[in-house]
């Protein structure tokens, strides 16, 4: 991650206020997909906060990650409705099939998994999204198929 790119983001926040911490981290993550030590340091210098505080805040919120995302980012709904319709099995299936759990990225950097709360479409659950494409009424088999498709598209 380049320093001056972070600087560019920081420039959007002309006031040195702690209130800006979370928005800044969100912007950085939006740009790069994850946070780094470099980012923690720069943001700390800018907001005049100790690095430990930045790190502490970043690790509190589940959306921040210090590991790069996979090329294909899988979002699996585990809202109550999807759960009742069998989403837990899907999470296990992803683990079985790709070896990744919530918040992890596969060794080859291809897939990462994020378990999210209700996606707002409970009627069509279980729901998942892969790189912003949505899939509804997922079953274990369907999941496998979808993942295979993406895998193939890479080969």
């Amino acid at each position: 991650m380049e320093n001056n790119k972070i600087k560019k983001i920081l420039e959007r926040y002309p006031f040195v206020e702690r209130e800006n911490l979370i928005p800044i981290l969100q912007d950085i993550q939006y740009e790069y997909g994850h946070l780094t030590e470099e980012a923690v340091k720069e943001v700390g210098n800018y907001l005049e906060l100790p690095a430990s505080k930045i790190y502490s805040v970043a690790t509190f919120y589940s959306k921040f990650r210090f590991q790069p995302r996979g090329k294909f980012h899988l979002k699996l709904c585990r809202g109550t409705s999807c759960q009742i319709k069998g989403a837990e099995k899907l999470e296990k299936k992803v683990y079985k099939y790709l070896g990744i759990m919530n918040g992890e990225t596969s060794g080859d950097g291809m897939f990462s998994l994020e378990v999210v709360a209700c996606m707002g479409c409970c009627g069509l659950g279980p729901v998942m999204a892969l790189n912003n494409r949505y899939y509804t009424e997922i079953t274990e088999d369907k999941l496998e198929e979808i993942i295979d498709d993406y895998k193939e598209s890479e080969e």
């Binding site: 923690v40 100790p50 690095a51 430990s52 790190y55 502490s56 509190f60 589940s62």
Partner: peptide
Amino acid sequence: SITTLEFRGRGNNTSVSTAMN
């Protein structure tokens, strides 16, 4: 005021740690 130690993570994964652990 060195602020080395802070909480890291949350819930029962919380620990006391330094920056970047």
